[in-house]
Write a protein that binds this DNA or RNA. Structure first.
Lengths: 340, 340
DNA sequence: CTGAAAGCGCTAACAG
DNA sequence: CTGTTAGCGCTTTCAG
């Protein structure tokens, strides 16, 4: 006979059976009263609810999960917990998940597609779904995983997988127009991590602008995300002789700003810098960063909504497969007229 | 007859029974082989392990939790996900938890003690333990909760609850000496959230120094944590006529720096500012912040180790109840000689 | 509308 | 060392 559950100086936890005993109904009725209130006589339901409250009943989610297959947990995968971009994502997901009664499992994939796939596969039975905030998985692998477990991606577009996309590429146009209007003609795009989907999308947008305006975008990189990479990135940019650069994200841009100070390159006099995302810090670094402000928190919220509505079998399948969120350019101190 | 588990185009998941059938042993033997490898014949164990690998068996954590009482999940409670201080905590906890095979549940308590207690109580049966990174709970409530579920706190000292404490108060002495050596005599301590334990500890340390050096520390605040509060805090500090201030944390300090720029107060010429924690951003704000560098990530790691060793029944109970982590002063641009 | 009963997948006594 | 057995707490048919 198993003697489950560790120590706990408290008494045996209250179960559905205690409520059943207290109210003189069957356990199954208690279960129904608590989950499908409609299917039960209002009077008995009230008694059951009263007893539950009285006894301070808390459902055991493990047991529920075991028999129903629903765990009440959603994983949010990020590539690096210390990247401020995710703070806002997490805040958004947190909000919506809590409101819907789900627990949030935080998983750091350390920028590795393999780790990502492995974790998801392993946990697939203890999750109701997952949100991939920065998948490094190839399309194929992603699509396959999506068959194992309900998935929603952020900033990643794969056929068949619902996604929330922040339209930074459109913003790249705004950023470029801004630079061009300031007289810049030679501009660099500083590339982020190789496997990053938004990085490619941003680069394509840059090429677009270049074609349209008959100017050249020089690509430098790729660089791993993170402030550290700023040193190499700044040096690379300086070597190209451009007067302005658009950087994959703010984290990298801030790193570049630091390196430029070290090298006594003035911003924006000698070089204009534009970032992407408008993360924590973009407004108080020196100089404050001109950047594309993204609705990050909203992206988290929307992603959760999409996922939850997918989980809800009663919902109409008319759901959009992809939601696009607009960004806008926020001009601060890191951009100015082209020199010479 | 229950038909558990949602759709999932895949086949029925592999269970322990499939392995038992495949190897011709009892399910319980499989369970043992996988959990207590020592208690099983090496030969049969090998066959079982082979079969498990072959069939791509993944244990169902719900079922395991239900019968063993261990869920494999640890909650980390933070008061505000968007506070960079927690990024590093989370990175530390994440690392250790993953290494030990635990899942990390992230819970944002929104700075509310009630919410904190409620969440913990509700989830207590789906958690093996919890780490409170910034509890706003009264000692009493905390001690009571600790009887329900294994707890480790960070920066919070309550009798009977193991804790990881960052010794910022000792750092306050260093910071004060630094300011005093620069000629400052009137110094303010800018108070953080009212219910914050580290805030009180830092204030006490400040009073200590004041007594020792026969000078006055003026307390201003309390202010809620967050950059926004910097406006009010800066104005309050200016009203006191001090030449320097030590601020509860970097987030607030950065907010203060911003407000001072708005009001054209020069830092450090007109006012020196010292922060606490050395979070992301402290080194690139303007001017870069002199602050007490805390081993935040390490605190997360240590907290997890303490918790896990508590969960391990075989471990000696010689465990320390509290670990103290040292901080050091990092001097940057926000402090300088006192004016006048 | 309600009760009885089966079982989700796994672990933990207890015998052998 | 291994098989048998009895559940963990809950949901979900299936009969009433």
């Amino acid at each position: 006979m198993p003697r489950a559950h560790q120590s706990g100086s408290g008494e045996r936890p209250v179960t559905i059976n205690d409520i059943a005993a207290a109210t003189g109904v069957a356990a199954s009725t208690v279960s129904r009263a608590l989950n499908n209130p409609g299917r039960v006589n209002p009077a008995t339901r009230q008694r059951i609810e009263a007893a539950a409250r009285e006894l301070r009943y808390v459902p055991n989610s493990q047991a529920r999960a075991l028999s129903s297959g629903r765990t009440g947990a959603i994983a949010v995968l990020v590539s690096d917990v210390t990247n401020p971009f995710y703070f806002d994502v997490l805040r958004g997901t947190q909000q919506q998940l809590k409101a819907a009664g789900y627990a949030q499992l935080l998983i750091d994939t350390e920028d590795s597609g393999e780790l990502e796939a492995e974790m998801l596969h392993k946990m697939r039975r203890s999750l109701d779904g997952a949100i991939l905030a920065a998948s490094r998985l190839p399309d194929r692998a992603l699509a396959k995983l999506a068959e194992e477990i309900p998935l929603v991606t952020i900033n990643r577009n794969v056929r068949g997988v619902p996604s929330t996309i922040i339209d930074t590429p459109a913003g790249i146009h705004q950023a470029a127009e801004h630079l061009i209007s300031l007289g810049h003609r030679r501009i660099a795009y500083v590339s982020g991590p190789e496997r990053s989907w938004p990085n490619e999308a941003r680069w394509h947008a840059a090429q677009d602008v270049a074609a349209r305006h008959r100017l050249t975008f020089i690509r430098v990189g790729p660089f791993p995300s993170g402030r550290r990479s700023g040193t190499a990135a700044a040096d690379a940019v300086l070597n190209t002789g451009v007067t302005a650069c658009i950087v994959f994200n703010d984290l990298l841009a801030i790193g570049i700003l630091q390196r430029l100070r070290e090298r006594s390159v003035r911003v924006p006099e000698d070089l204009s810098v534009v970032g992407c995302d408008d993360i924590f810090g973009a407004d108080f670094c020196h100089p404050p960063l001109t950047t594309l402000t993204a609705p990050i928190e909203q992206a988290g919220r929307v992603a959760v909504s999409m996922l939850l509505s997918r989980l809800d079998r009663t919902a109409a399948p008319t759901m959009r497969q992809s939601v696009m969120l607009p960004v806008h350019l926020t001009v601060r101190g890191s951009t100015g007229p082209a020199h010479r």
